[in-house]
Nucleic acid binder design. Structure first.
Lengths: 298, 298
DNA sequence: AATTGAGTTCCATATAATGGAACAAAATGA
DNA sequence: TCATTTTGTTCCATTATATGGAACTCAATT
């Protein structure tokens, strides 16, 4: 019986990419960085795949899209696209704004609330993540590999703020985040290489590893060290230490990390984190083995 | 409508209530919902509708379902259902647990995070909701009408607890919640009557209005008073005062509420809340009118 | 070894999605 | 103001896709 005592609680926050606080200047001052399409899209197989493809474009677009905008982003004839969107609207997963632009619908919230609260990996990992948070006193993330991205499923913030935010459900690229790189290092050569090819690299900061070569070398290092560092590669001024979690026969690949602003991190803290984060990852793996068992198929 | 008891251990929530009592409401496999936007479920139109129907059953089930369980809940032949589920899995919206049971997938989180953060109604309502929270010092909910349910899109809790929880995305029935009843009172006679017929009533508490007649009378009262009361009709010991929000030509029907445990509510507070909640609803409506404009099409 | 139950695959058929083109409705602009 | 373009919507013969009954595999049970 895995996770019989779920806390049906999900916290969402507006997409504020900053891993840390609101004081981060946000690199995306230049809109051009954001305009870049949607990196991790499925190759639409079947009717369902195509519909989700459209939903993806609508949901993941940084700006509201109207019909013609969509038409430019999705490779579909007008009539077809129109019907696909109509269906999505009728199903409540897409809604139409006042100006005719589309947005993802609230029906998705309901599904997601369940997806989060029922997720057995997250449930198993939670106590370990909390322990890491208490041990370090810094922000801790828990993320899961999904395609070319890491999807965050939990976050414990250094609670200095009055309100506690979370960015559950937000996604980041693999190549410029600690958890992302740690997960890549866990994949077998093929899987890893394949993804490294597919990324559409962007220099989020000066330190971003923005070529397959740089990334491959980094991942080699991560493999030997067992931890990954994000040295302000995603957000300026933000560092993190992460470790990958290999779900083995459960099929889950995930990661944990500790994050903090660079100026606050002492050398010895960094070392201590490496150990703690690695231990946390190992504990979670052990717990998964004990509580989840092998996956039956696929 | 939710355990605001901060003791953190015995938190009961709509979702996991069934984890304890195994009466299993068994996913309302009822009904012939037609005209309503996206009804609870059923009458799957097109391939997409059928797929979402399956997803709904998987996501909304109180207990993990394996293939044969699903087969009993969805009206589809084996071969068909198998392919539908396979497609959902391939698309990442359904995942397979270790024991072969299905669960909603994490891809939904990403969509939902966007749906929430982009939702213009929620954005407009937020400052008003926060103001109400500050004025009352009690838990405040913001919910939107979706089919036969209210989906909560925001929640400000009385922050006595260390961790702040939210149940964004959770859904509750219309007939036994303050916001739900307030929204019903806002609908035109047809829409209202239609839903009142479709509900599958359950006596959540002693006070639950569990027949169409009781409910209709209540709604009449709500119409004249402009506020709805939840007198421990959903959760024992929990009361709330709610007001409906009529989005007019935006098509949105929503509601706000103030919630607290019965023992803590003084008579004068109740009166004060009625006024504050109603004012909040009116302010949100005004803001919507100003900032959203009419919807272009159905 | 025989039997049941759960899950998966196959494939002729029916059904639903497709997409080009014609149509309607706003927005533009001269 | 009316013509013109842009944007969104509908139609329908064609084609691709989903359908579902049946046969099959693989474990558990007896």
């Amino acid at each position: 019986m895995v996770g019989t005592k779920t806390e049906g609680v999900m916290r969402l926050r507006p997409d504020d990419a900053s891993a840390l606080t609101d004081r981060v200047p946000a690199v995306d001052a230049d809109a051009s960085a954001h305009v870049v399409p949607h990196p991790a899209r499925n190759l639409a197989t079947g009717t369902l795949g195509k519909a989700f493809d459209v939903l993806d474009v609508i949901a993941l677009s940084p700006k509201p899209l109207r019909f013609t905008d969509l038409l430019g982003l999705v490779d579909q004839p007008r009539g077809t696209l129109h019907r696909q969107v109509s269906n999505l609207i009728e199903e409540g997963v897409v809604l139409v704004n006042a100006d005719g632009s589309y947005a993802p619908g609230l029906r998705l919230l309901k599904w997601a609330a369940r997806a989060w609260s029922q997720n057995s990996f997250r449930i198993i990992a939670e106590p370990h993540v909390r322990q890491l948070h208490e041990a370090t006193g810094e922000t801790v993330h828990l993320g899961v590999l999904s395609g070319l991205e890491v999807i965050y499923v939990d976050k414990l913030e250094t609670n200095q703020a009055v309100r506690m935010h979370s960015q559950v459900g937000n996604a980041s690229p693999l190549y410029c985040t600690g958890i992302g790189k740690a997960m890549l290092a866990l994949l077998d050569a093929d899987q890893c290489a394949q993804r490294i090819q597919q990324f559409s690299y962007q220099r989020h900061t000066q330190a971003t590893l923005y070529t397959p070569e740089l990334l491959l070398a980094e991942i080699e290092t991560i493999r030997t060290q067992g931890v990954a560092h994000d040295r302000e590669e995603h957000e300026p001024g933000i560092r993190c230490v992460a470790a990958g979690i290999d779900g083995q026969d459960t099929g889950t690949i995930a990661g944990v990390s500790v994050t903090a602003p660079s100026y606050r991190i002492a050398e010895d803290a960094l070392l201590r984190w490496e150990i703690l984060v690695r231990e946390t990852a190992r504990s979670i793996e052990a717990d998964m083995k004990a509580k989840m068992g092998p996956r039956s198929h696929e």
